[in-house]
Design a protein around this nucleic acid. Structure first.
Length: 97
DNA sequence: CAGTTGACCGAAA
DNA sequence: TTTTCGGCCAACT
């Protein structure tokens, strides 16, 4: 567990139910605006560190993360509605601190 | 030690 | 609108 991962997980943990955010935004909030890619890596292992709502983190465009199978179901379970094109409605669900 | 890769992003074509 | 490209940085080969 390094400091970077800790910051990321803190931010992710602050996302309220029914809201989502993007990797880039989270990286920015954490203080590492360029490390968006690493955020993905950390979140992939986030479960190992503890229970975090990493499924609430999506692409900046609102599309679900590529290469991830459970995210859609998890979001629906949280109450986040998806458009027919499998995209999250950022207008309503984009989380801004 | 050098080259790829990745749950990415934003701008440009 | 979709595709391409460059940039960023840690981990892996």
């Amino acid at each position: 567990m390094d400091d970077f991962a800790y910051l990321i997980l803190e931010v992710v943990n602050e996302i309220p139910k029914g809201k989502v955010s993007s990797y880039g935004d989270i990286a920015k909030i954490a203080g590492y605006p360029k490390n968006a890619r690493k955020v993905g890596k950390v979140l992939s292992n986030a479960e190992f560190f503890g229970d975090y709502p990493c499924h609430r983190v999506i692409h900046s465009d609102g599309t679900l993360v590529m290469g991830w199978d459970e995210q859609e179901s998890l979001l629906l379970e949280e109450g986040v509605k998806l458009k027919p094109n499998k995209k999250v409605d950022m207008k309503l669900y984009k989380w801004k601190p």
